[in-house]
């Protein structure tokens, strides 16, 4: 398989079919990311169209990139936020639509979590996410869903790396505050287990 950066370079030198390869590959991931900002599919389609037309128009001045994904995400985010702003929508961010079925993953390495406990964890996580600011939710999403490193998140959200750490720390602090009760329960459970 061709390296993604080669495809990127081919596109930059004016090969339209390479741009299409990039479009096909990133259509769903970008759509998924955009969906977190807005449930309006038309708006996301508009943003995607603007992004790819812009890429083509500016291809002469676009530099080679270490990561096509990061470049696309960053440009897409900028276009999308501007469109949202122009249509006077608020900056929101929702991390979850539906919960994944985790039976398989959790069956791994003999961790068996009771249905009840899983439900409980879900509920708490959901409540904690709801308490976070949109930016905190976005950073949680980028870190744990997109699996981005801090410097990548910093570049994407146009923050310094230290602000990125701070933002994620705040998000997790919200989680901690919210989950402290259940933490405590677990602690008690752990203590009673020890006694046995």
């Amino acid at each position: 398989m061709q390296d993604e950066r080669d495809i990127w370079d081919a596109f930059r030198s004016g090969d339209e079919s390479s741009l299409q390869v990039i479009f096909d590959k990133y259509y769903f991931p970008l759509f998924n990311y955009g969906h977190r900002f807005s449930a309006d599919n038309h708006l996301i389609e508009d943003a995607l169209q603007e992004l790819f037309v812009k890429l083509w128009k500016n291809r002469d001045s676009i530099k080679e990139t270490g990561s096509v994904k990061n470049y696309l995400y960053k440009s897409f985010r900028r276009v999308l936020l501007r469109l949202l702003d122009a249509r006077q929508r608020k900056y929101t961010f929702s991390v979850f639509d539906e919960w994944p079925e985790l039976e398989q993953e959790l069956a791994y390495d003999h961790t068996i979590i009771s249905r009840e406990r899983l439900e409980n964890i879900r509920r708490n996580l959901k409540a904690a996410l709801e308490k976070m600011t949109p930016r905190q939710r976005e950073i949680i999403h980028l870190r744990y869903y997109e699996e981005m490193e801090y410097d990548e998140i910093a570049a994407l959200m146009q923050l310094s790396v230290s602000s990125t750490y701070k933002l994620l720390y705040k998000a997790i602090d919200t989680l901690r505050q919210y989950l402290s009760k259940s933490d405590l329960l677990i602690l008690l459970a752990a203590l009673s287990l020890k006694k046995i």
Partner: peptide, 25 residues
């Protein structure tokens, strides 16, 4: 469990037409 819940989110599948959008572009 938190990490997996966040990570294994099913990707959003839009009921839109990718090919049609590419034609527009």
């Amino acid at each position: 469990t938190w990490i997996l819940l966040l990570n294994k989110q099913p990707a959003y599948m839009p009921a839109t037409d990718r090919l049609q959008l590419w034609d527009k572009i």
